[in-house]
């Protein structure tokens, strides 16, 4: 059983515009993901591809006008989308934890960081206060905050960005979650700190045997830190697979274009920038969503592309992908 399994998740923004016309932006279309304990999954894609929205949908953090209109999210065999607010509150922060970008504004400005850690532990785990305090200090130690005793009474504004991100990771991990979702955990941090934080995340994932989902724009981070990678485009996962395999033999044309557009390859003169625009979410094309900017597109792309398993655990959503081994194909071509 997978730790987390997302099936055909669809999230739309449904609202009335100024003319009171009902409009629907199809922000997530058929997201399929799986994640196991001890794995790090990187989700990459351009801005607006739905990376953060996927994370928020999984945790039930959507606010109107965003609405989940279809699909399922199972976590440890339990369906999350039908849970009530009270039930999901016992999972959020306890079994599924999130680390977001902007670490400094994610902390309550009027509470000392030690107290924030203790509160969070009390909310989900409970027990005597002294135990929570000990746990908080242990976690601060574990995420590499120097002098945890001294920093226990520090205020959020006294922390640097890197320290604040460490505090957030400590807060995320204090209840020993099974799944950690890191939404651009290193945006706004310089490269040295970025490497420290990601090394730390990797180490903690191994130590606590969690599943970890890292959302990022940075393909370098994915190549370096993730076991699995999922490429998103226009609210779809177009390709998911083991990082090495996806990077060396990208199956989906969009992934190929994306990888070709990295600065290193540009310098080698291999390929140029990505052209075109993502499709209009209010008015999606029928069939393949990337047909407008795909060099391979033919008239058969007007039909929805099937999700094809190329090899074990490596899937892509494209008409032109051929399953390497016989059988196992979900294609209906």
């Amino acid at each position: 059983m997978n730790l987390l399994s997302v099936q055909d998740l669809q999230t739309h923004f449904i609202f009335r515009d100024i003319d009171h016309q009902l409009r629907e932006a199809k922000a997530l279309n058929k997201v399929n993901l799986t994640l196991n304990s001890g794995q790090v999954l990187g989700i990459v894609g351009e801005t607006g591809a739905g990376k953060s929205l996927t994370a928020q949908s999984i945790c039930g953090l959507l606010r109107p006008p965003a609405k989940i209109v279809g699909g399922s999210v199972t976590f440890q065999g339990r369906e999350l989308l039908t849970l009530s607010e009270d039930e999901i509150n016992t999972i959020r922060g306890a079994e599924i934890a999130m680390v977001v970008q902007n670490p400094r504004s994610s902390l309550d400005p009027l509470t000392q960081i030690g107290a924030q850690l203790v509160r969070l532990h009390q909310t989900h785990t409970g027990g005597p206060l002294a135990g929570s305090r000990k746990k908080a200090l242990d976690m601060m130690q574990a995420v590499g905050i120097p002098d945890p005793e001294g920093r226990f009474t520090a205020w959020p504004h006294e922390l640097s960005g890197g320290m604040a991100q460490r505090v957030l990771i400590a807060m995320a991990l204090i209840n020993e979650p099974k799944l950690l979702i890191a939404d651009e955990p290193t945006t706004g941090l310089d490269v040295t700190v970025q490497a420290q934080i990601l090394d730390l995340l990797n180490e903690l994932v191994a130590r606590f045997d969690m599943g970890c989902m890292i959302i990022t724009h940075d393909l370098g981070i994915v190549a370096h830190y993730c076991d699995q990678v999922a490429v998103m485009f226009a609210g779809e996962i177009v390709e998911q697979g083991p990082t090495r395999e996806v990077f060396l033999t990208p199956a989906h044309p969009y992934t190929q274009q994306l990888l070709a557009a990295t600065p290193e390859r540009l310098q080698l003169g291999v390929k140029s920038q990505l052209g075109g625009q993502p499709p209009d979410l209010f008015n999606l094309p029928t069939g393949c969503l990337s047909q407008d900017r795909c060099t391979l597109a033919t008239e058969k792309c007007g039909a929805p592309p099937p999700l094809i398993e190329i090899s074990k655990g490596h899937l892509a959503r494209c008409h032109f992908v051929k399953p390497a081994e016989k059988g196992r194909s979900k294609s209906n071509e």
Binding site: L61, T90, D108, T111
Partner: peptide, 26 residues
């Protein structure tokens, strides 16, 4: 809609805790 309130929601705090522990002092 500030980020620390969203973080508090994401950390599984019930509404009354968000109201009285986070929003009230701020």
């Amino acid at each position: 809609s500030s980020i620390f309130v969203e973080s508090a929601i994401a950390a599984g705090n019930p509404t009354w805790r968000i109201l009285f522990l986070h929003l009230l002092p701020n």
